[in-house]
């Protein structure tokens, strides 16, 4: 079986598993081989436990043989190394935790494990998620698979690079001040930053407890919806998780109904984002074209007058945890 791993969505993996085109063990082995080949260059993964992953894959194959057909069953994924995983080293990108093998497990991870996802390993991050480039890890930089001379963004840079390079079908990341969204943009994948409280933080090594949220790095919004449907929801272990119904993200993520799904959509960006020092190609290439404060109605002209304080407020409030 030859896999096109960089293009393998969660949906495609499930379709292949369901039809019997391949087993989870075969798929997991293919990902492990690709990780062996590419990770020495990319350093997206800090820890890979091939034996455990193959055992999880075999268990998933057995569940499928017994007739189970659930959205993540047998799908190989990666986990940012700030998520506590039972029996799998969890470093948070720090040498301080070099030898830490948790004896317990966080809620989002436990839910994915129960759903039959296969954990290939743990991905690199800025130390304790404090960074925006994955250069500040105790275990070296992660490289952007599109151009290895560039950073993947961060702090979930290992997860973003792993998805972009086809080293997993999807990955979990975490976002306190952009750490899912920004590396997703740098690596050309889809990043879903959940609203605070949507996913339990139990078992997430804290950065800023009033802002941390667990999110998804995926090939597309549809896949992100599938993973989020598993991890979202109230948890007694996190008093700040929201006790709200979890919507059906997958059916809400409709396929585009036309070739130009954004036709007529107006996108706003606060004028305060267009600061001096912005790179000209960035301004020309995207942001500049969406400068609505120049061209649209009164309601869009208000901007965010305190924006210039955001950096100070963000940096200080991150450390309230």
């Amino acid at each position: 079986m030859v896999f096109d791993l960089p293009a393998l969505t969660v949906r495609a993996a499930r379709a292949g598993l369901r039809s019997g085109a391949f087993t989870s063990v075969a798929l997991t082995r293919a990902f492990l081989d690709r990780i062996s080949t590419l990770n020495p260059r990319l350093n997206a993964f800090l820890t890979v436990d091939a034996e455990a992953a193959l055992a999880q894959a075999a268990a998933a194959d057995a569940r499928m043989a017994a007739g189970e057909d659930t959205p993540m069953l047998g799908v190989p994924i990666a986990l940012k190394d700030v998520l506590v995983t039972r029996g799998l080293r969890t470093t948070a990108g720090s040498r301080i935790l070099e030898n830490y093998v948790p004896v317990w497990e966080g809620t989002a991870v436990a839910r994915l494990r129960a759903a039959g996802a296969v954990f290939l390993g743990k991905t690199n991050t800025d130390e304790f998620a404090m960074g925006s480039s994955t250069e500040n890890s105790g275990y070296g930089v992660t490289r952007n698979p599109w151009d290895e001379s560039r950073v993947p963004g961060g702090s979930s840079g290992g997860s973003a690079a792993a998805v972009a390079a086809g080293l997993c079908c999807a990955a979990l990341g975490t976002d306190t001040g952009g750490s899912v969204r920004q590396p997703a943009a740098y690596c050309g994948v889809t990043g879903l930053k959940n609203s605070y409280g949507r996913v339990s933080r139990y078992g997430l090594v804290a950065y800023g407890s009033s802002l941390d949220s667990i999110g998804v790095l995926a090939h597309d919004a549809w896949d992100a919806a599938i993973v989020n449907g598993v991890i979202a929801g109230w948890d007694a272990q996190d008093s700040t998780s929201m006790n709200l119904d979890v919507p059906d993200y997958v059916s809400a993520t409709a396929a585009p109904s036309s070739a130009r799904p954004l036709a007529g959509v107006r996108i706003g960006a606060p004028r305060e984002y267009f600061i001096s020092g912005i790179q000209p190609e960035v301004e020309r290439g995207g942001a500049g074209r969406h400068r609505p404060t120049r061209s649209v109605g009164r309601d869009h002209r208000r901007g965010q007058p305190a924006q210039h304080r955001a950096r100070a407020a963000g940096l200080l409030s991150h450390r309230d945890g």
Binding site: Y196, G197, S210, T240, A306, R309, R311, A312, A313, L316
Partner: peptide, 21 residues
């Protein structure tokens, strides 16, 4: 310095926000 910068913001009449939830 960041703390000093925020101390200059006029927050008169704005209730404290301990949590967004």
């Amino acid at each position: 310095d960041y703390a000093a910068e925020l101390e200059r913001v006029d927050v008169e009449g704005i209730p404290p926000t301990a949590s967004v939830l």
